[in-house]
Design a protein around this nucleic acid. Structure first.
Lengths: 224, 224
DNA sequence: TAAGTTACAAATTACATTATTTGTCATTCC
DNA sequence: GGAATGACAAATAATGTAATTTGTAACTTA
């Protein structure tokens, strides 16, 4: 169904007014309605059974009009997944940047809470919203850049905690970005959609805590 | 096709003479021929396109006779996967137990080599034998006990290295089994079939080495 | 009597056909 | 003139049916 050169889809639904206001008042509103309807259908029927036609029908508009607001079905799914992911990474940023109740906490405490929060959030999602979780997983498998951006965001947050820990003298780390990647790698089993889904909400909390001890000791040791 | 109560398949092809000799000389021989033919077909056509009838045809026997030696198609696949996995874990045991050229190496060195060997082996397999890799992955996804046994074997090997490290005063670890699990968890990204396949043979070696530094520092620190 | 076969029912898969969905475009409607 | 639509071609998915595969059992052979 793609008959000419693709206009280089860019999955930039978050830029140029994704959250509420578009370039124009009305257009952004419709875009928002579509997004909401798509999210609703995806939550109820999952990515396999949710078509663009379904979304349009739910809003009593032609499916062609949906394509005026989203370049492709993939972009629509990406937009829904992006919101969903930001609902996870947003709150975690408060822990990472030491905002609010976390202002006086050590970097170690915050890293610990951060990892536990991430694991818990993913686990909660797979149990409460299995179909939306499947949507996100499908996006991740297709290696679309929303998933990549999510990982980059998480990596940035961990790096911020580590840098703070270094500044406070808690950690001895030469390359905080590499160390952040290592922390995400080490905890992959506890937050990667594949493993979270596989172990269907019964991830061993003791194993997470053991991993945290190992990681924190490593960051303190100066080995990195 | 299952018309009465299943006779509780047990996937115990490795017990009671899997490697060469069965209870009888001749029967084990045929079993071996079937196994070899199945492996060959699985390697060439993959698990999706390899049927029991194909295996039987390759040996010019009736497929019913295959069922005299393997209770089900699943058991046949399990047996092939089991061999394949033992070809990986077998050589690694030499590193783990400090045999041969590894007799004089420190536990740290051996753990390092062991993890690198595991990652390299999995990576080599996915590149050289993609179809057999897919067979193993299918078995792992179906959560059959061959996969579980493989992980248990690996965990045992890591625990042995850690125990040795503790005895030599290299590591300070209270619970070597839990620590071994943590090491496997931390390195999941580098050897789990899902991730190995996903990153199709281009796993970042630098990330593996960073992870090893982190893990070794943790084992030395006494945090576990 | 162990090793093998043929014959068969039940389940699964392959295949061809239809129907739906995706994405585009010319046109209509404020 | 931006928002929306209907009509359309190409791709994909659903459907029903034929062919294959799985697994069992009764039977043959050495």
């Amino acid at each position: 169904m793609k008959r000419r050169a693709a206009p280089s889809r860019k999955t930039e639904e978050s830029e140029a007014g994704a959250d509420g206001k578009g370039p124009d008042g009305k257009g952004g509103e419709t875009r928002e309605r579509i997004l909401k309807a798509a999210e609703d259908l995806l939550r109820r029927h999952g990515p396999a059974k949710t078509t663009v036609v379904d979304v349009a029908r739910a809003l009593e508009m032609s499916h062609a009009n949906v394509y005026r607001h989203f370049a492709s079905k993939a972009e629509l799914q990406d937009a829904v997944a992006d919101r969903w992911l930001k609902a996870i990474s947003g709150p975690m940023e408060k822990i990472a940047r030491g905002k609010g109740p976390h202002a006086k906490e050590s970097a170690s405490t915050r890293l610990e809470k951060w990892v536990l929060a991430l694991a818990a959030a993913k686990q909660r999602k797979v149990l409460d919203d299995p179909e939306l979780f499947a949507t996100y997983h499908a996006v991740a498998i297709a290696a679309r850049d929303v998933a990549e951006a999510h990982v980059a965001e998480l990596r940035g947050q961990v790096a911020a905690i580590i840098r703070d820990g270094v500044a406070r003298g808690e950690f001895k780390v030469a390359d905080p970005d590499a160390a952040a990647m290592a922390v995400l790698n080490a905890t992959t089993r506890f937050h990667h959609p594949h493993h979270v889904k596989e172990s269907a909400g019964r991830i061993d909390q003791a194993q997470v805590r053991t991993m945290l001890k190992l990681v924190l000791a490593g960051l303190r040791s100066g080995a990195l």
